[in-house]
Amino acid sequence: MRIQLLVIEDCPNSAVASNRLETALELLGIGGVLVEHRVMKTCADVRGTEFAGSPTIAVDSLDLFPGAPTEELSCRVYSTPLGLQGAPTIEQLTAAFASRGLGKR
């Protein structure tokens, strides 16, 4: 399994997304998985990826929260139970991984 956190430079939500992702993986019992942090610096960097804005979390090159891919270096928002946020909640992350059969059940 390959997990990537795709962000743009100076993304205000990259640290929050990274922390929530690490916590979710630990809760699922797969905390030892390497998360590749990839910074998108140019439009060419996003071509061929599932990048749908920063931060995008991809598992085996597929967006964990499928959105419309973009070649623009832009921010992304997620719909959460608390309203729009710059990263999915820990609960949303664990549910998304579990729905793909990853981690403890």
Rank of each mutant, 00 (worst) to 15 (best):
A58S: 14
Q85A: 15
S14M: 12
E26M: 08
R38F: 10
A52Q: 02
C43E: 12
V77D: 01
I90H: 02
P12I: 06
L6C: 10
G101C: 03
R20L: 02
T23Y: 04
T89E: 02
T49K: 10
E71S: 08
Q85M: 15
K104C: 09
A58H: 06
E22S: 12
P69C: 03
H37D: 05
G83H: 05
S74I: 15
A17L: 11
S99H: 14
A68M: 13
I57N: 03
D60W: 05
R105K: 14
P69V: 14
G101S: 04
N19W: 01
P81I: 06
T70G: 09
E26Y: 09
F51W: 10
R2E: 15
E26T: 04
V35T: 08
L5Y: 04
R100K: 15
P12R: 04
T23D: 04
V35K: 06
I30R: 13
E71W: 04
P55R: 05
A52Y: 02
G83F: 11
G29F: 09
G48S: 07
N19P: 00
E36F: 03
G103C: 03
I3L: 15
L5M: 08
P81Y: 06
E71G: 12
C75G: 15
A15W: 07
K104L: 14
L34W: 00
E72R: 14
P69D: 00
G32I: 02
I3G: 11
I90F: 01
R47V: 14
R100W: 13
A68T: 13
T49Q: 10
V33A: 15
